[in-house]
Structure formats: structure tokens, C-alpha cells
Design a protein around this nucleic acid. Structure first.
Length: 106
DNA sequence: CCACTGACGAGTG
DNA sequence: GCACTCGCCAGTG
């Protein structure tokens, strides 16, 4: 299939374990739509509070929290939630993916 | 039904 | 490492 409902994306995001993070591109691949990282971002933006989706565990490929269009406070909330789970940010505001990126059970 | 709206990523210079 | 380009698509009003 080449189409994806946002629902499918939320399902994948929901699998991210506590204390780990995943990238948009990674979620897209796991959802079966490689190359559609953007759609993942759009979907999460819409989920915002809609359900038990750990949206805060998704960051961009640089390991940074993606800036919201509206300069929303959500960015700060996201960082606090992650730090609360033990995720560390370096001096550049980046999360060392080598250490915290979620690696689905092989 | 149509127009607009967004949390990205890989490649190139 | 930074600036820019291009490909990507489901929802909402």
C-alpha cells in the first residue's frame, strides 16, 4: 500500500519505549512509508492530545526537538517530558541518538 | 469539491 | 557545518 492513515502512524509511535526516542524518518519506515517523514510530522501535530500517543518521543534526524510553526511552548514541554524519562540533551540541544534512539527488537 | 496547512530528510554546493 | 532545493500527503473548513 502506498497510502497511510495518521492512525497507522500513531500506532507506531505508541510502540516507542519510555526513555527512548525515534526520528520522523524512522517512524515513516516502520509504518511502511519510507520517504514520508514529513507526513509523520504532520500527523503528530494533529494528534496533539487526541490520544495516548507519546508524541514527545519523536525528534528530527539531528536528534533535536523540531521547532513548531507557531513557536509553541510544546517544544519546551517535550524537552521536559524527555528529561523526565532520563533522556539527556547535550550542549547543542541535541539528544545523542547513538545512546537514546529506539532500536525495535531485532 | 477546492485551497490551505503543516513536528522532515536526503542531497548538493 | 550552513543554506538551499526538491519530494512527500492526509485532514480540515
Amino acid at each position: 500500500m502506498t497510502t497511510v492513515s495518521y492512525r497507522e502512524i500513531y500506532a507506531v509511535v505508541s510502540r516507542i519505549p519510555r526513555g527512548r526516542v525515534a526520528t520522523y524518518g524512522q517512524i515513516a519506515r516502520l509504518a511502511g512509508i519510507p520517504g514520508h517523514a514529513r507526513q509523520v510530522g504532520y500527523a503528530l501535530g494533529r494528534s496533539d492530545g487526541q490520544g495516548p500517543v507519546p508524541w514527545h518521543r519523536v525528534v528530527n534526524a539531528k536528534g533535536m526537538i523540531s521547532p513548531r510553526a507557531d513557536g509553541s511552548w510544546m517544544e519546551l514541554v517535550q524537552r521536559l517530558l524527555l528529561e523526565g524519562e532520563g533522556v539527556i540533551f547535550d550542549e547543542h540541544g541535541r539528544i545523542p541518538l547513538s545512546r537514546f534512539q529506539w532500536r525495535p527488537a531485532s
